[in-house]
């Protein structure tokens, strides 16, 4: 496309952000509260039975898993439910593409606002870790860009779902058949080493595990290993997913 622009979407992102500012409390509650409940409930409940895991307390273990899972949640919700209601229910996209904006610009705005939600969710979560004293490491700073990357990967996948969705019901498939099983084999709630090799392999091919493996050392005050691999897989899902989602949305709008 001749007049492709990478930054033209910013006014649309600002629209989504203004809408978020009106409901920020309930929105943050939603994306942060649930993983916090997992962390506190399992962390202290199970943590009493499992005192240590791989050199860290169980509560710190599950905190790092929940950080990755929370970032995923924030982006997935935004990329599915919010994007779909803007596209299909409120017809916000129709209004935007009547202005000098392209569908690519709209998709960029959805992708980046969903990733923004992942970042916001991780920042609140980090604040909770600091307050509860679960982790007070300076390396927590690096969780923010990781959350952004997790956000971009899962937002892209969510936007693919949105591109083919006929109604909201469809999205529960992605949660039940995609996200939740993925969490089970990605080391969010428990280590994966005892799982069958083939399940571990599937986990290696999916994005969430790479997010967890980047975040877990950071919560312990260490730097992760194999950074390039983890970042590479997340980036591949982000860029590849976004390209597919944009293609599918263009097809949907042409008819």
């Amino acid at each position: 496309m001749s007049d492709f622009s990478l930054f033209r979407f910013i006014p649309i992102w600002r629209r989504h952000f203004l809408a978020w500012k009106k409901y920020w409390l309930s929105s943050l509650m939603f994306s942060t509260f649930e993983p916090l409940v997992y962390m506190v409930g399992f962390g202290y409940g199970m943590g009493a039975l499992v005192p240590e895991l791989g050199g860290m307390t169980y509560v710190a273990f599950i905190a790092s898993g929940s950080l990755a899972f929370g970032a995923q949640n924030g982006a997935t919700f935004e990329g599915m439910y919010s994007a779909f209601s803007r596209m299909f229910i409120q017809r916000t996209w129709d209004a935007i593409i009547n202005a000098p904006m392209s569908l690519f610009d709209v998709m960029m705005s959805e992708w980046t606002i969903a990733a923004t939600k992942a970042v916001l969710s991780s920042v609140t979560f980090i604040a909770a870790l600091l307050v509860l004293g679960i982790s007070r490491e300076w390396t927590l700073i690096w969780v923010v860009p990781v959350a952004l990357l997790i956000g971009l990967a899962f937002a892209a996948l969510a936007l693919i779902m949105t591109a083919v969705a006929k109604g909201y019901e469809f999205f529960s498939y992605w949660f039940s058949l995609g996200v939740l099983p993925m969490a089970m084999i990605s080391g969010v709630f428990f280590p994966v080493e005892q799982l069958p090799k083939w399940l571990q392999f599937i986990g290696d091919c999916l994005p969430l595990k790479h997010g967890v493996e980047l975040i877990r050392p950071l919560v312990q005050g260490k730097l992760p290993s194999d950074v390039l691999l983890h970042v590479g897989v997340l980036a591949l899902y982000a860029l590849g997913g976004f390209a597919i989602a944009t293609h599918l949305i263009r097809k949907r709008f042409a008819n």
Binding site: Q90, R91, A95, N98, P100
Partner: peptide, 16 residues
């Protein structure tokens, strides 16, 4: 479209 205004059939003002 920079010099076009569109009033769509379906109301799509931002309800928020």
């Amino acid at each position: 479209r920079e010099k076009v205004g569109v009033v769509p059939q379906m109301d799509n003002l931002d309800p928020d």
